[in-house]
């Protein structure tokens, strides 16, 4: 329904090429390690943006599905099974599909609510999932933690396969968002964000749209959780189902720009390297929480729509000012329909 601008297509090619080339240009393991986590959060934030940014439904249960993806990979490829190679990456689409199917009944219940109530229901689900992760020892081994087979990738480029797998999921997530923005589903989600009842009045089936988006978003989140588990090779409930993961992805979307295509990536690029650099020092490991708080305040007070929409507004205002300066006063008269064609 919308055309793709040449500049938009060129921007996409430049961004994806630069991201793909990154680990081949900057080869130091610690640098690519930061890039792995940056790409992980870029994917998580993009997936969250699909529902939260486009439809305005603030879902806070995403980290639960991150954990489900992580524990699924941990159960499929335990330490006792030996090095699994690239197989965990190949099985990720099935992990995502399973998580998406699992999310449908949960979404069906959660979408009985709206607004703040929906956010409370979904964060409750997150804490239920975390408690279950401690209690369901047959699936998670509880607080003892769970190991995954360590891959025999070359030490010099150990991070690279994980980075590329996360990049592939991120590109998939952006492609889904790109498609949705151009499809009727995107119209539906944006209309729901503005006024769901009015959208229903125009004949829109909002329930199906919300469920499909919820499931897609959580399926992608679970896939990323699977890569994370394989990367760190030993997972605990408090880290696999961590509210801070949800807070991180939401903050990145708010910082970069809700409902934009590249806002989540921008938010991740700005926040994750700072977080990882702080995490490398034991004294400052948790300081990133202060950073998160500061960024939240900054966004709420100064950039309520996020960086990308604010910059777009600024550019539009400058263009409009420049147009006004160069055009005659008559050109600024409100548009009047000049003709009605039968």
């Amino acid at each position: 329904m919308r055309t793709v601008s040449r500049s938009g297509a060129a921007l996409t090619v430049v961004i994806v090429t630069a991201l793909a080339a990154f680990p081949f240009v900057f080869k130091a393991n610690w640098v690519v390690n930061i890039a792995v986590f940056t790409m992980m959060y870029a994917g998580l934030a993009t997936a969250w943006n699909l529902l939260g940014g486009y439809s305005g439904y603030i879902s806070l249960c995403n980290a639960a599905f991150f954990g489900i993806g992580a524990y699924t990979i941990a159960n499929l490829f335990p330490t006792s099974g030996g090095p699994p190679g690239s197989t965990p990456f190949l099985i990720l689409p099935l992990v995502g599909l399973g998580a998406a199917i699992l999310s449908i009944p949960i979404g069906w219940v959660a979408f009985r609510t709206r607004g703040v109530t929906f956010a409370i229901v979904t964060i409750s689900l997150l804490f239920v999932a975390q408690t279950l992760a401690f209690l369901m020892r047959s699936f998670t081994r509880g607080s003892q933690g769970m190991g995954i087979g360590v891959p025999r990738f070359s030490v010099a480029t150990y991070e690279r396969p994980f980075y590329l797998a996360l990049l592939a999921i991120f590109v998939f997530a952006v492609s889904v968002c790109w498609y949705v923005r151009r499809a009727k589903l995107g119209l539906t989600l944006f209309a729901i964000r503005d006024d769901e009842d009015r959208a229903r009045g125009l004949g829109v089936d909002t329930e199906i749209a919300k469920l499909v988006t919820f499931a897609t978003s959580l399926g992608i989140t679970a896939m990323i959780g699977g890569v994370w588990a394989y990367y760190i090779t030993y997972i605990y409930p408090q880290f696999a189902v961590d509210p801070l993961i949800t807070i991180g992805m939401v903050l990145m979307v708010f910082l970069g720009g809700k409902g934009t295509l590249w806002g989540p990536l921008l938010g991740a690029l700005l926040l994750v390297p700072a977080q990882r650099l702080l995490a490398q020092n034991a004294t400052t490991a948790r300081w990133y929480l202060i950073l998160y708080s500061g960024v939240f305040l900054f966004v709420i007070l100064l950039l309520p729509r996020g960086i990308i929409p604010s910059v777009q507004d600024l550019v539009a205002r400058l263009r409009s000012k420049s147009d006004r300066d160069t055009s005659s006063p008559a050109a600024t008269v409100p548009t009047v329909p000049t003709e009605v064609v039968p």
Binding site: K184, L187, F190, A191, R193, D194, A199
Partner: peptide, 26 residues
């Protein structure tokens, strides 16, 4: 006022024909 304020003018008009097929809508 019954427009969707954060949506573009074009998308608002598209919403009026939501029940149409994609080709008919265009």
């Amino acid at each position: 006022r019954s427009l969707f304020p954060s949506m573009s003018v074009w998308d608002n008009v598209l919403m009026g024909g939501y029940v149409l097929s994609r080709a008919a809508l265009r």
